[in-house]
Computed example of a mutant assay.
Amino acid sequence: MRLSPRILSSVGAIAITCFVSAAAYYYKSRTREVNEVMVFCKLQYNAYNYFDKLVSFIEAAKHTVHVCMPGIHNPAIQGRLVKLIKEKDIKIRIIIDKSGYNESTDFFVRELIEAGAEIKFKANEPIFTMQHKFCLVDDRILMTGTLNWGNDRSCDHWNYVYITSKHQLVDPVKKEFYQMWEVSTDVQSTIHEQSTQILYDSDVETIEILNPEEVMDISAADNPTLVETEPASELQVMEA
């Protein structure tokens, strides 16, 4: 069966139209502007659904995730960041408050570092000075607001998160992050210093503990003036 040139040209035109439409849709979906607000509230029925949606933006990262938070000890956030590093080889950098690394957060911080995350804090500043709460995904999407990701009970409080891809809003925050990163101290070096100090403190000479009588004997031998003399009897005092 032979097709006429008119039919062939029509089929070709339809095919080209479909291809162009698909390409335009794909490009539009990639460059689609994100501009959304999530409100978290302890009275909200779907608070945890919102939290999962928030984390989905992080899991969509292609190259980098930059976080600036007072601390990271939320198991859900921390676990997914570790997963991103191990499964997608995403470069993760985190700046926390000086108080963000302590005994209660040691496990979360060490696990992130062991997975490959870089974590810093400003060592020359007092604690509780970090008020930034934002995350940059691929330096293209900004998530910021009152929600503290470091708190594992974040959904029990009143919070909001603003998510945007507007470069007018993303660029200043991105600049702030890189400036802070340059002047902050690596937490890993602090952990190493603490481990070294513990080993140094534990490497002390063994001291032999003597009973009190032996101690008195040794002290008296070293210093004769410390030898205690017996008190004079009453007869000796009268004769004197």
Rank of each mutant, 00 (worst) to 15 (best):
V227N: 04
P172K: 11
I209A: 05
Q188K: 14
S219N: 12
L235A: 10
A23L: 11
I92V: 15
A232G: 09
I218W: 08
Y48T: 09
V137S: 03
L210M: 14
R153G: 04
T206K: 09
N49D: 14
D89K: 15
A22R: 07
A232P: 13
E230F: 04
A76F: 13
T229N: 10
S9D: 14
M69H: 13
A220D: 14
Y48M: 09
N211A: 12
G79Y: 01
P5K: 05
N211F: 12
G71D: 02
L112T: 04
Q179H: 14
W158Q: 12
V137E: 00
R32N: 12
F19P: 00
H63S: 04
A22Y: 13
A13C: 04
E205K: 04
G79M: 01
Q44L: 13
I77C: 01
G71R: 05
W181P: 03
I127R: 15
K88W: 02
T196Q: 10
R80T: 06
R80K: 11
N74M: 01
L226I: 08
L142D: 02
T229C: 04
Q131N: 14
R93V: 02
Y45Q: 12
R6D: 08
N74D: 09
E125N: 06
N46M: 06
R153C: 02
F108A: 15
D171R: 14
Q197H: 07
I95A: 05
Q188P: 01
D139V: 06
F134E: 00
A240Y: 11
A117T: 07
E87R: 12
S202M: 10
K122E: 09
E36V: 12
S195T: 12
E36W: 00
H192Y: 06
A15Y: 09
I209M: 05
S195H: 11
K98M: 02
N46E: 08
Y50A: 09
I94Q: 01
G12P: 02
I119S: 03
T190Y: 09
A115D: 01
V187Y: 01
T64C: 04
M143H: 03
E228Q: 13
T144G: 04
M1A: 14
Y45M: 08
G150S: 07
I198S: 06
I141A: 07
T17V: 11
K62I: 05
R30N: 10
F51E: 02
L43T: 14
A15H: 09
E103Y: 10
K120S: 01
K86H: 10
E230D: 09
A221S: 12
E228G: 08
I58G: 00
E36R: 13
C18E: 08
A13N: 10
